[in-house]
């Protein structure tokens, strides 16, 4: 009987001691991190396109921090999902196609001959990247455009196109070496030619 008591007592004592230790550690070594919303917002691509269903990247960041899914951002694509998964210690999941597909980067281009100067697109642009005034032709500042395509819908004469950014020697990226095509049983293809993946 007394052995059982001793054992229970010892366990209780241990539990109490470790509890105190843990409690102390929790207070003493508390990590003051950046607010998580800021960190999430920093990962999001800031296109402010609203494809996630929220009116901008910050609101979506807030939603994620409150437990919303991390796969609702088509402009960020898989890279953003992976980064979010890494940050929040979640499993990376594929992009939710309900919110759109991952597309190559585009910028808005206004066919200036057709523009009637209604300023609707200017009001729609979340980053003030369209220049113009009422009854004046509008134009897109390409370096500021995030490619969110929010300006396409409001245009009454459909004169806005989303065009992919051209690849020039200056923004060209080295492709990854083709991953060992001959590792597969076929034994075909000697030499790894650089792929034309622009």
């Amino acid at each position: 009987m007394s052995t059982i008591l001793t054992a229970v007592l010892a366990l209780l004592l241990l539990a109490a001691a470790f509890g105190l230790l843990l409690g102390y550690a929790a207070v003493r070594f508390r990590v003051e991190g950046d607010p998580i919303v800021e960190q999430i917002d920093a990962i999001l691509p800031q296109t402010q396109c609203g494809q996630c269903g929220y009116p901008g990247c910050k609101p979506y960041a807030e939603a994620i921090s409150n437990g919303d899914a991390i796969n609702k951002c088509p402009p960020g694509g898989q890279a953003t999902i992976d980064a979010l998964a890494d940050l929040l210690d979640l499993e990376p999941i594929p992009l939710d196609s309900e919110h759109g597909e991952e597309k190559p980067k585009t910028v808005a281009y206004i066919r200036e001959d057709e523009c009637i100067g209604c300023t609707k697109c200017i009001q729609a642009c979340p980053v003030d990247a369209i220049l113009g005034a009422a009854k004046q032709m509008h134009t897109v500042i390409i370096s500021e455009c995030t490619g969110c395509d929010l300006c396409v819908e409001p245009c009454p004469v459909d004169c806005i196109d989303m065009i992919p950014l051209p690849v020039t020697p200056n923004n060209w990226r080295w492709p990854a070496p083709v991953s060992d095509p001959s590792l597969i049983l076929t034994d075909r293809g000697r030499g790894h030619l650089m792929q034309e993946s622009a």
Binding site: I184, L185, D187
Partner: peptide, 10 residues
């Protein structure tokens, strides 16, 4: 290699 579908010769 066969099970892993890799090139035998290689």
């Amino acid at each position: 290699l066969l099970l892993r579908k890799r090139s035998l010769r290689f």
